[in-house]
Structure formats: C-alpha cells, structure tokens
C-alpha cells in the first residue's frame, strides 16, 4: 500500500531581482513509496533530492503536481504527526541542551512524553551521555544523532531523512545504518536521500535516481545494477612460491596481503580451475566471493553515459 504518493511533481524556483529567471529544481516527478519499505533517493548535488523531501514535509510548495501522504496533502498539518524529518546538515537551537531539544520536539508534535521515553530515545541514538550539553558544543555527528532522536521521539510511521549519514565517520555511519534497519523491522517507512551509494545499497529496498530534477531510474538494487556476477575473488594461503606463476597465469590479478593471497578471475571455468590448483598445491582456501557490480560502479558508468550523451 502506498504511504507516500507523488504525481507529476514540479518545483520551479524564480531567482534574480525581478524573479524572471526560472530554475527547475524538480520536474514531473512521480514516486510511490510503499508502507514499510526503505526508499533511497539518489543523485548528484542539485538533482532535486532535498527539494523533493521538503515538498513532502510541507516546507516548500510544489509549483504543480500532487503529493499524498497516507491519502492527505502535506498542507494538512495534522498529517505531519506521522512524519519524522531529519534535514540535511541539521541546525538546531544552539542555546538548548540535547534533552531540552528532544522534549521541545515532542511538544511540537503536541505530545507530552515522559522523561523515561526521552532517555530511551537518547540511549537508542547513543546520546545519553551528552544530554546535558548545549547543542552549540555538539559535533556534526552528534547533531545528526540528536536529530534522529527528535525524529523518533513520537514514534512516527514515516521517517524522512535527508543525507542521514552525511558528516559521519565510518563507525557512526554503521551505527546509523544499523538503527535504520532496526526501524524498518519495527515497521517504519523510511525515505532517505544520500550520495553515499554503498549505504544506500546496503539499506534500500528500492531506489530512485534523480538527475537535474528528473527521475531517470527506479527499482530494486538488483533490478538496476543487475544480478550478474562479473568477478570472483579467491583468498588463499599456504601455496608454495613455485606454484604461484601457474595461478597468476589463470588469474586476472594476484595480490599478496600478509601471508595470504587474493586472486581474481572473471569466468566460472577459470574459477574452478584455480580452486582445484590451490587444493592440489596443498593450499588453504579462506574465502570465495562472487562480486556483482556495485551501485557505485553502476552510478559512475551511468553518469558518464549521461554526460557523454549531452
């Protein structure tokens, strides 16, 4: 069932002193986000991701087109009870403390929440220790986390996260990823924009790629990237130096890492041959990993094709 539905959504900004210059930020965008799914809105800077999300939460009004959230338009402020929104590079009231901000956010939803609930959410996003610190002293990652706490405090059904992993270190990104997976399990619908494609690949049920305000591709990762294996990665050890040239002849690449070797090959036949050689030479097989094209690789190829076509 569609929880967010956008049809022919267009946003044109006017700029310049006389407002005569038109900038099309989003162009005839149609989207259907289903209940309980994680949808990733991907695209380069200026693709219209943030503008789309702002229109969904009612911060910007569409020039034309329709948005329905659970059957109602975003201008119906009551519908926003069901939405938790984390803006890109979140800016909060610097004069507030972490705990105060979460409390105030719950008040904005018209809900009285207990201290216990606030502590629970702060614990969930790993901010319990910093609850009494003024927000002006928070790092970018801490602001991102407290922003998530604000999104979660009233347990909304839909979470709209604009670049939720932006500015986070790898550990912080992993924690936020795990949290998003946990929230999906709890039945939340999550729509997020990102330029970190590996994160989108790990999280999203479906993605939509925007370029210059238009949706150019949509589907599951495998529909977009394809299931085709393009390479096998074999990691092994304990093979004598004398046997390595034979392995090297079959492999596309052979790289040493400590006491282990990593061989890559593209064909299934070569893979089988390599495995039997390693076994015959008395080697120890550590792993065999089939590699599919990553979303990142797909994205770069796609963008290059688009640029070349222009």
């Amino acid at each position: 069932m569609a929880i967010i539905f956008c049809e022919n959504l267009t946003k044109i900004y006017r700029s310049g002193f006389w407002k005569l210059k038109k900038v099309v930020a989003v162009n005839r965008l149609s989207l259907t986000i289903n209940e309980g799914e994680i949808y990733g809105l991907l695209g380069p800077n200026g693709a219209g991701k943030t503008t789309t999300l702002k229109m969904v939460v009612g911060l910007a009004k569409p020039t034309s087109g329709k948005i329905l959230i659970m059957g109602k338009e975003p201008k119906d402020s009551e519908i926003r009870k069901n939405i938790g929104f984390l803006p890109e590079q979140p800016y909060f009231y610097e004069y507030l403390k972490g705990y105060e901000l979460v409390y105030l956010t719950a008040q904005m939803y018209g809900k009285e929440v207990s201290s216990k609930r606030i502590y629970e959410v702060l614990e969930l996003v790993g901010m319990i220790e910093a609850k009494d610190m003024f927000l002006k002293n928070y790092s970018r990652g801490m602001l991102q986390r407290i922003g998530l706490a604000c999104c979660l405090i009233t347990e909304p059904k839909i979470l709209i996260l604009d670049e939720p992993m932006g500015g986070l270190d790898p550990i912080g990104r992993k924690e936020i990823r795990d949290l998003i997976i946990q929230l999906k399990k709890a039945g939340k619908t999550i729509i997020f924009s990102s330029h970190i494609l590996s994160d989108a690949e790990m999280l999203c049920d479906r993605i939509g790629i925007l370029i210059k305000g238009e949706k150019v591709k949509e589907g599951t990762i495998s529909e977009i990237v394809g299931e085709e294996i393009y390479e096998y990665e074999i990691i092994f050890s304990n093979v004598g130096e004398v046997y390595l040239p034979e392995i090297k002849r079959l492999a596309k690449d052979l790289i040493r890492s400590g006491d282990k070797w990593m061989a890559t090959c593209e064909e299934e036949g070569k893979r089988e041959h390599l495995l039997s050689l390693i076994q015959n030479f008395g080697g120890r097989l550590h792993s065999l990993i089939p590699r599919r094209k990553s979303l990142e690789e797909y994205f770069f190829t796609f963008m290059k094709e688009k640029r070349d076509a222009l």
């Binding site: 939460v57 519908i79 939405i83 590079q89 979140p90 800016y91 956010t105 904005m108 939803y109």
Partner: peptide
C-alpha cells in the same frame, strides 16, 4: 537563516 525553521515547520504546526 539558521534553518531551524525546518525543525519546526516539518512538525504538525501551522
């Protein structure tokens, strides 16, 4: 200017 308005107007506040 400080974009704190995003925090407020994305809530059920008219």
């Amino acid at each position: 200017e400080k974009r704190t308005i995003y925090l407020v107007l994305s809530k059920p506040i008219k």
